[in-house]
Amino acid sequence: MSTLTSHRPRPPAQPVTLRARRLPLIALLGIALGALALSAAVVYGAEIGGAFLVIVVGLLLYLVGVYIASARVEGPRQARNRTWSSLIHSAFVLAALPLLSVVWTLLSKGTERLDGNFFQTSMNNIGPRDAEGGAYHAIVGTLEQVGIATLITVPLGVLCAIYLVEYGRGRFAFWIRFFVDVMTGIPSIVSGLFVLAFWVLIVSPYLTATGRPGYSGFAAALALSVLMLPLVVRSTEEMLRLVPAPLREGSYALGVPKWKTILRVVIPTALPGIVTGVMLAIARAAGETAPVLLVAGGTAAINFNPFENNQSSLALFVYQQAGDASKYSPARAWTAALTLVALVLILTIAAKLLARRNRLSR
């Protein structure tokens, strides 16, 4: 009996699988659709919100559904991992929705006046019942004001950052960093008031033949440079600190002076980040309205001279057209806003390509 028992055939062993069970993609899509449907039924049924609330509530229901389904199929550990991954992806989508909404609104409403007349004419002698009129004077003003502000700010900001990183020690460097941090949070209207009180009311009367305060595009450029300077200093300082120390030490070991190491090694290495910071400062300056309104005054005519008489800008043009009572003004405002965004985008792409080309050429 024992012999028969010992030779009894054993049941076949279960195959060992190296693949864990995975939740199929169709199940995730089903959970998402079900969460949105349930959220819409709750929100619209109770009349407590609109489409945005439906998305938020649907996201929460989706996370709960994903965790329950993944825990039953894949296990608690994978369920937590999948839930947190879904939360990260959902946060990215929620952050991108406002940007996509802005882009879609600009493209849908800003193309109505996207014609040759808009870019070739100004608002001079344009009445409320005239459908024509463009932003040529505002485009000229924006390019000149931002260009002058960039020429003033970038050398000062980069040199200040180089001093803070490479040479600055002690109390003096501490106070420079402190005031740069304070200037970062200054409202734009304060910079406009500063330039108005100092340059327009005190300095400009001595520079004009009439002795009267002179509103000009150059004064607006000074106000914009006050806003741009802390951004350029902070971004350049951070990029210079990211340059590895062995690059500097290797240059010093070869007998290269410190100033030449900074010029030929440190700055080229940090150049892409510096360009990014400069373009962020330019984008902020191009979109400011209050400083231009205070010290440049704005005008409906074309003024190519930034050092004399009033001058307009695209941001000021959008502000004025948005508050105008004419039925043709909103279309001009949306097209000017689209033009401003496109102008900043073109400048950013051109600066990035130029920095990349200079880096590759070395």
Rank of each mutant, 00 (worst) to 15 (best):
T3V: 07
L4D: 11
R19N: 04
I26Q: 15
L28S: 12
L36F: 08
A37F: 12
A37S: 12
Y44P: 05
V66T: 03
V66R: 00
W84K: 12
L87R: 02
V93W: 08
L97I: 10
L99P: 01
S101F: 09
V103W: 02
L107H: 03
G110W: 01
E112I: 11
P128T: 07
P128Y: 08
E132T: 15
G134N: 09
V140C: 04
I152D: 06
G170D: 07
F172Q: 05
F172V: 07
V180I: 11
D181F: 04
S188Y: 02
V190K: 00
A197Y: 02
F198E: 06
W199H: 11
W199T: 09
W199N: 08
Y206A: 14
P213Y: 11
G217C: 12
A223W: 07
L224S: 11
V232D: 03
R241T: 00
R241A: 01
R241K: 11
P244S: 06
P246M: 02
R248P: 02
G255P: 09
V265S: 13
L271T: 15
V278F: 06
L280A: 01
A285V: 02
E288A: 08
A290Y: 13
N305W: 08
N310V: 08
S313E: 05
A315S: 15
A315N: 10
S326N: 13
Y328K: 13
P330Y: 06
A342N: 00
V344E: 01
L345K: 02
L353V: 09
